[in-house]
Design a protein around this nucleic acid. Structure first.
Length: 592
RNA sequence: GGCCCGGUAGUUCAGUUGGUUUAGAACGCUAGCCUGUCACGCUAGAGGUCAAGGGUUCGAACCCCUUUCGGGUCGCCA
């Protein structure tokens, strides 16, 4: 190895120099970030993952080294020895942390030459994402991506340290697992030794971590890779990472308490921000009613107002139907937006419609105190007054209204609210608002399947006081489930799990799983329930999403080797066709 | 699966109604000059399958169709 390195040994990293180092003899290794040739004076910026430092070659002082330095090009990997020198005051570079000093080189070895890279390794150079992904190893040299992955590592370390210190055990669970129903589409792996049978890659370690509780491991965590074969989004990758946690002998408060301490620890150590605990809790119902979302961004107001009471006798069909069918009528008072152009209101209506609202109605209360609305002819004076007072309307306000099914209407208006918040610049980007959302419904009616499906997953325990409702009105049953929400993004979620065979069977029953089906799919799990199950519960965080929030980045910028929207890797070319022999061994025939 | 946007030097882009365009600019690259640069500067130069295929036309980077790739979004993501 010393041969390759020319007998040189690295003494320092590039980013850590200050005036205190002046006079030291150092040896650095790294990449040539840029070179500036002034004729008989050459400057080069040397880069490693800690930063950049300027190295100098002076023809007058050492002609041999200077001639070598003339060969240097961008992205050459070099070793350079020399003296740390203070720069003269007029040569200081304030933009560089190491700008007070430079390295006067007396020994240089080119460790590896480099072709001209397809793009400049620099945070300022604009390069399309596909080129960056094709040459990901170059892209990853950029300081911003290095920073993101370093922060990712630091968060993971804080998480591990915290959980280790609190008695949690890190245990791995299998990647080749049984395909079970529900949830996302599975990535499948064919079994060679058992023709026609398949493994699935885990969507989460859910069942295994519950089995670990049954095994007595009590407190478990894992930073676990998960796979879901669904279409990608700007915040969604087909393989992603969860911080997965499970505990025994706990109820909701125990889980929330330790987890908000974990989150507070991350905020303290990564952001230098002290959270005040305990975090606020808000019921699902309240979040939907006030913010139109189960992950509300509470950094700004513009809350939703319910108008059913005011409009229950309205002659306007949409209102009447919504009120009679148990739906809702939601209004937002866009303070001071009476002057919105028709086009701006149409834009908001588009938002509402794209999330399933039938339409968006509006009432303008002009600065002159005039009421303008296409609704006027359908509203009695009392109804109009009722609306205006419900939303505390003042001259200059714009009132937006939607009516229909509860979930759809709330969510549509929730998105209108977010649009308005962005448009009106109401969101303080420096604020961090964390809260727990609790009391989720256990079940959701699926129009498609014409039956109830689990809102969280089928192992979630119902709230004790709601258990009788399972037989009478399942849709009203609330779950011992919770999500943690940061600035309108779901960071993680979990639940207290069912821990008795009877309740698990009952839930499967409500979900319409036949005994045979349940046995076939979850038989091993149900059987485990016969042998002594501690009450348990846990949570899983979307780790990538967490890093996105802490680094203010897109998901592709917090994953070393991400995939495109087509779920392909532009660098390696995966997925790719395979040799026919491989397919034959796996007993797979292509149908084309 | 639906809808929307895009693909032109290595990179980021411009390119008029379809006609003096030999398809340009900037950065990068190469060479020369240059002792205080740090986005060095100056001079010169090289560099193009206009994503692919088909069509319309006297004539296509430009219009139409198909395919493909990338991005966004709805559905989907218990």
């Amino acid at each position: 190895m010393t041969e390759v390195l020319g007998g040189m040994k690295r003494t320092d990293m590039c980013g850590a120099f200050s005036l205190q180092d002046v006079g030291r003899e150092v040896t650095l290794m790294g990449w040539v970030n840029r070179r500036r040739n002034l004729g008989s004076l050459i400057f080069a910026d040397l880069r490693d993952r800690t930063g950049i430092v300027q190295v100098v070659f002076n023809e007058e002082l050492d002609r041999d080294i200077f001639l070598q330095a003339e060969e240097l090009r961008n992205e050459y990997v070099i070793a350079a020895s020399g003296t740390v020198a203070k720069r003269s005051p007029d040569a200081v570079n304030d933009k560089l942390p190491t700008g007070q000093i430079e390295i006067k080189v007396d020994r240089l070895k080119i460790l590896s030459a480099a072709d001209t890279p397809p793009f400049l390794v620099d945070d300022n150079s604009k390069v399309s994402e596909s080129i960056r992904l094709k040459y990901r190893y170059l892209d990853l040299r950029r300081p911003s991506l290095q920073r993101n992955l370093i922060i990712r590592h630091k968060i993971a370390k804080v998480v591990r340290d915290f959980l280790n210190d609190n008695g949690f055990l890190e245990i791995e669970t299998p990647m080749l697992v049984k395909s079970t129903p529900g949830g996302a589409r599975d990535y499948l792996v064919p079994s060679r030794v058992q023709p026609g049978k398949f493994f699935a890659l885990p969507q989460s370690p859910q069942i295994f971590k519950q089995l670990l509780m049954i095994s007595g491991f009590d407190k478990y965590y894992q930073i676990a890779r998960c796979f879901r074969d669904e279409d990608l989004r700007s915040d969604r990758q087909p393989e992603f990472t969860q911080i997965d946690i499970e505990m025994s002998f706990v109820d909701i408060d125990d889980v929330l308490s330790i987890n908000e301490k974990l989150i507070a620890d991350i905020f303290r150590k990564i952001m230098g921000i002290e959270l005040s605990l305990p975090l606020k809790r808000m019921s699902y119902d309240e979040a939907m009613n006030r913010y139109g979302s189960d992950k509300p961004d509470v950094r700004f107001g513009l809350e939703l107002t319910e108008l059913s009471d005011v409009l229950k006798d309205s002659s306007f069909n949409a209102f009447k139907e919504a009120a009679e069918s148990g739906g809702c009528i939601k209004a937002i008072n866009a303070k001071g937006c009476a002057g919105f152009a028709r086009k701006e209101i149409d834009g908001l209506a588009e938002t509402a419609k794209s999330y399933g609202a039938k339409g968006l109605l509006w009432i303008t209360y002009t600065g002159e105190g005039e009421i303008k609305s296409s609704l006027l002819k359908y509203l009695t004076d009392d109804e109009l007054k009722g609306i205006l007072s419900s939303v505390s309307a003042q001259p200059g306000d714009l009132i937006l209204i939607a009516a229909g099914k509860f979930d759809t209407t709330c969510e549509a208006m929730g998105h209108v609210r977010l649009d308005l918040g962005n448009k009106l610049n109401l969101i303080d980007q420096d604020r961090y608002e964390l809260l727990w959302i609790v009391d989720f419904p256990l079940l959701e009616w699926s129009e498609e399947e014409n039956k109830y499906v689990a809102k969280h997953h089928p192992f979630t325990a119902p709230k004790d006081e709601d258990i009788p409702l399972l037989d009478t009105d399942p849709s009203k049953v609330r779950a011992k489930a919770y999500d943690i929400v940061l600035n309108g993004t779901e960071l993680g979620g979990g639940s207290i799990r069912i821990h008795t065979q009877e309740m698990q069977k009952k839930i499967f029953d409500v979900l319409g799983f036949s005994d045979e089906y349940a046995k076939n799919m979850f038989g091993f799990f149900l059987e485990a329930f016969r042998y002594g199950v501690p009450p348990h519960g846990g949570i899983a965080y979307g780790f990538d999403r967490m890093v996105m929030l802490f680094t203010d980045s897109d998901i592709k910028d917090v994953i070393a080797f991400p995939k495109t929207q087509n779920a392909s890797c532009l660098m390696s070319g995966a997925p790719s066709e395979v040799d026919s022999n491989q397919l034959r061994e796996l007993h797979i025939k292509m149908d084309n």
